[in-house]
Amino acid sequence: MDGNILGLALPIGLGMAAIGSGLGLGKAIEGGMNAMGRQPEAIGQIQTAMIIGCAFIEALTIYALIATILLMGNL
């Protein structure tokens, strides 16, 4: 198997991105849940803001995924 270093780097990089955004998502959702528990009448607004924030955080993993997909041709 004459492997390329990319074969090692791509999964590790994607995993690192996933770790980072997992931590970020956990923190964002924790905050959202706390706020919802404290103020159930504002659930709609909190949810909207939370989903938007989650989308921004999650986008980072998606960028890593896209970089992986693009670079997979070089494997």
Partner: peptide, 10 residues
Amino acid sequence: ALRLFGNIFG
């Protein structure tokens, strides 16, 4: 566009 594409393609 990248977010939508990446999620659905993935």
